[in-house]
Design a protein around this nucleic acid. Structure first.
Lengths: 342, 342
DNA sequence: ATGAAAGCGCTAACAG
DNA sequence: CTGTTAGCGCTTTCAT
């Protein structure tokens, strides 16, 4: 009753099994399955039929060993619990699945060292890597990009293909929004010093401030966790401002909570703008005015670029920029009356 | 200037390179590196030194090909954008990294078929799998568990090792909480029909209801997405109840939003209880009373169990149950006065 | 268009 | 304790 292999057996079918069952050589089977055009139609069809009968699934390791290709892409994120990555992961997943690639997920725990190490240690386990929020230095990143096909998200480093969500432009827009509401004393609650995005946002804020005739006030840095919001709120309160743009929504939401506890009315006493429009920004209290980032698209685009590089290894270094837009909700409002004349 | 291999060369070092440089056989090098105890100390140390010099990193594919072990575990989740999985992923990541395992993440998009397919197609790419919220039928799941080392999360199926977050007990507690606040007409906003957890929660609710002398009212089913909250809210409003336990926080939060739009005061007119205590449950408006699930621990425990099975393949099927607890926030309150006499 | 043969880098008997 | 010898399953020349 038991067949020699395949369906109904414990041992998975191999090329050799198919070859035996078909009466052709393994090399022919190999070709038929991975390079169909180079095999006679009849034989190919016969082979395909037998392969299906035997529930044949190629052994990825054996394949990788000889061909070097793994069919996997590595996705490195700094912190799985940061909702910002949800969309990125989902977009990346969609795109890679569609192309038949598997995803290896690594949480690098905000550590550049770990990032580097993982990239090396797993080198032969993936074909290319997507670095979402790399903590690597520009030098290191550029060096790695020479050896490994990779695409960085929100990182602009010479020689490194990237997808950049243009939050700096968004920050300018946000500042305009606040100024048009009458705010003049505006703070920026800074994110972690190691964050590339943070630097860009603050720079944009100064630039826009200069243009609009307001001088933004820097507070922080704070870690980009919700829990850091308490400290950020206190610091902002202390800075005697009427509005604040926060490094990201996580921080902004944390601030909202603290401000509420302290009896500070948002936006009555203080307006708050977040960044990213993560899960939760729409239902926090008050709903957050924020910069909406096309994260899912970013994930898709990044993987698409990566796959393109894998096909065509000597592609020019591409840099794609995705626009953000300001989503006004309820955390921003006109400057308090008694302050408008400052 | 160029060395034959290793540091500074393009081609990564192999066991053979180390063997050549050390003057021992490859098999000895292999042993020294993966079974240190079975090699003479001096030789081992020499080998280790050379390996380090050469930046040796084992080729996982070659290893997998012969040994069958991949050093990877697959984590299947139904939807990456569901915050419930954050903690699970993080816990799983911690535990697997600590043991030197890599994580392959797959979003099965709520599809049992895809789940099955992925598990098969990638079979040789992982050593074991963690199914967080499997959509597989009991039969199918049990069958797979025979062939593949796996641990299921929130699934209780004979013969399948599992980690179960005991939300049913929590639901009983939640119902007691509501009853003690004077509620008598209480709805359960049901999750998707295919969800195992949903069935358990509803069952628990009926059981507790019988004990407490109230008959819960079933509304739904609804998908477990925030957007389904609108429909759920309407249905609950229509059911003429004073309180509602929702399948999960995502649904509950969606309901909150809709109720606010409709001018229904929570908890003044209607009390809402969620389930899971996901990201956002603490800062939504009003903050949600919910069942706090130890998700991160669940992830850790599940991976720990899985790894234990991998070491010791004939371990008895273990089932670990993790308790939940009721976290009372601001979405539940006393029954409205004019209804208390019903 | 197909076959034969040589590995990819590693592990796992089996000898010594 | 160490070396020798086979492969694991597949891809890839090189012939035919």
């Amino acid at each position: 009753m038991t067949q020699p292999t395949g369906a109904g057996t414990d041992r998975p079918a191999t090329l050799a099994d198919i070859a035996a069952a078909t009466g052709v050589a393994v090399s022919t089977v190999s070709r038929a399955l991975s390079n169909p055009s180079r095999v006679n139609r009849e034989t190919r069809e016969r082979i395909e039929r037998v392969a299906a009968d035997l529930d044949y699934v190629a052994n990825g390791h054996a394949r990788a060993l000889t061909s070097g290709r793994t069919g996997a892409i590595a996705v490195l994120i700094a912190d799985v619990t940061n909702p910002f990555y949800f969309g990125v992961l989902r977009g990346a997943q969609q795109q890679s699945r569609a192309a038949g690639y598997t995803q290896i997920l690594v949480d690098t725990d905000e550590s550049g060292e770990l990032e580097d190490q993982v990239l090396k240690r797993l080198r032969r386990s993936y074909d290319g890597a997507l670095l979402a929020a790399s903590r690597l230095s520009d030098r290191r990143l550029a060096a790695l990009a020479q050896e490994i096909p990779l695409v960085a998200l929100n990182r602009q480093t010479a020689g490194v293909p990237s997808v950049f969500i243009d939050s700096p432009s968004g920050v300018e827009q946000a500042l305009e929004h606040l100024v048009s509401l009458g705010h003049r004393r505006i703070a920026y609650a800074s994110g972690p010093r190691t964050s590339f995005s943070n630097a860009g946002r603050w720079r944009a804020m100064r630039r826009a401030g200069a243009r609009l005739g307001v001088e933004p006030i820097l507070v922080g840095p704070f870690s980009s966790r919700q829990s850091a919001g308490a400290a950020a709120a206190e610091a902002v309160l202390n800075a005697d401002v009427t509005a604040c743009i926060a490094f990201n929504d996580l921080l902004a939401i944390g601030m909202l909570t603290r401000l509420r506890e302290r009896g500070v009315d948002v936006p009555g006493d203080l307006s708050i703008v977040g960044c990213d429009d993560i899960f939760g920004a729409d239902f926090c209290n008050p709903p957050l005015t924020t910069l909406t980032a096309p994260v899912e698209q970013a994930g898709r685009t990044a993987v698409a670029m990566l796959l393109a590089r894998l096909e065509e290894s000597r592609l020019p270094v591409a840099n794609s920029t995705l626009p953000t837009h300001l989503t006004v909700r309820a955390s921003t409002g006109p400057v308090p009356d008694h302050r408008s004349d400052r």
